[in-house]
């Protein structure tokens, strides 16, 4: 609890220290991925279902938000659109329920393939439903009217709020019977069903909450994209990969693992992208990190460290 409070207060104070814009911009993305990774962890970590489709829900959130803004000619109060986030989160969670009920009839690698298919279906829709999404031309909307010298701040704080929300949900889950039920699903789902544990309901619930959070982060991301979003970035397989990789690096099923993974990988990625120019070389570094984790820290940094210390 104290650790959590120190963490949140530190992050809350950072933007007030007069850091340069590029650092703040980077921190916005670090927080964004920390929230995304924490959301993915509810399904991929706690429940053990390796979803590769989360970017689809990120995109659904982004487009839902952009479409709501699209109808307006200008925004008078920049904070007002953030009030839509809960509705977008709940709405996407409800969309997630039937999808989970079907997709979660499969497991492990088959589940990964089913969910990545979902990602490409949503991406194809985003490219082709011109009337709704504007297709490859992108979907435009009014720019957030925040002052230029503190433009990052609102996004930073809202994302920090979403990260805290995701972490509180994870914390609450781990400490309650929901967490115990999900852990039995991860450990031996058939045995768990035989013990009368409602495995179906528990995993669908975890998936719904996870994609609801993901969609809210997607909505904030859309707002941060000064006035236009494009389908290849709104529904981006790399977002899915980043979420998975960060959770695997930090430690699946832990509270702090996804956050640690996001801080390390996102800052590292931004640094590599800066050093290696706009080229895509950082993707090779990504792949190498993933291979090294799988080889040397298959359980992730935090569980491995905890294991050493015991």
């Amino acid at each position: 609890m104290i650790r959590g409070a120190v963490f949140v207060v530190t992050l809350a104070v950072l933007p007030l220290l007069g850091l340069p814009h590029w650092v703040l911009n980077m921190l916005v993305f670090v927080l964004m991925f920390a929230a995304l990774a924490s959301a993915w962890n509810l399904v991929g970590g706690l429940t053990g279902y390796p979803s590769l489709g989360h970017a689809a829900f990120f995109g659904i959130g982004a487009y839902a938000f952009a479409l709501l803004l699209h109808r307006q000619t200008e925004i008078t109060d920049g904070w007002q659109p953030f009030a839509w986030l809960p509705a977008i989160g709940v709405g996407t969670a409800l969309i997630g329920v039937p999808i989970a009920a079907i997709a979660m009839r499969t497991r492990a690698d088959v589940f990964a393939i089913v969910t990545i298919t979902l990602l490409f279906v949503v991406q194809t829709l985003a490219f082709n439903l011109h009337g709704l999404t504007g297709g490859a031309q992108g979907l435009s909307f009014p720019v957030a009217p925040f002052p230029a010298d503190t433009f990052e701040r609102p996004f930073y704080y809202v994302l920090l709020g979403l990260l805290v929300l995701a972490m509180l949900l994870t914390f609450g889950t781990l400490r309650s019977k929901v967490g115990l039920a999900l852990a039995t699903v991860r450990g031996d789902e058939d045995k768990a069903r035989g013990l009368g544990i409602p495995v179906g309901g528990a995993k669908v619930l975890a998936f719904a909450v996870s994609v609801g959070l993901t969609a809210m982060v997607g909505a904030v991301w859309a707002y941060y994209q000064v006035g236009i979003i494009y389908p290849q970035f709104a529904v981006d397989p790399l977002v899915t990969i980043a979420m998975v990789l960060m959770v695997f690096l930090g430690g699946r099923g832990t509270l702090w693992g996804p956050v640690l993974g996001a801080f390390v990988l996102e800052t590292g990625q931004q640094y590599l992208a800066y050093e290696l120019g706009a080229s895509q070389f950082y993707l090779i570094a990504y792949a190498m990190i993933f291979l090294l984790i799988m080889l040397f820290l298959p359980r992730g940094v935090l569980p491995s460290l905890a294991g050493r210390l015991r």
Partner: peptide, 9 residues
Amino acid sequence: WWRQLATPR
């Protein structure tokens, strides 16, 4: 389970 989901682990 459904009644106890929110109780401690």
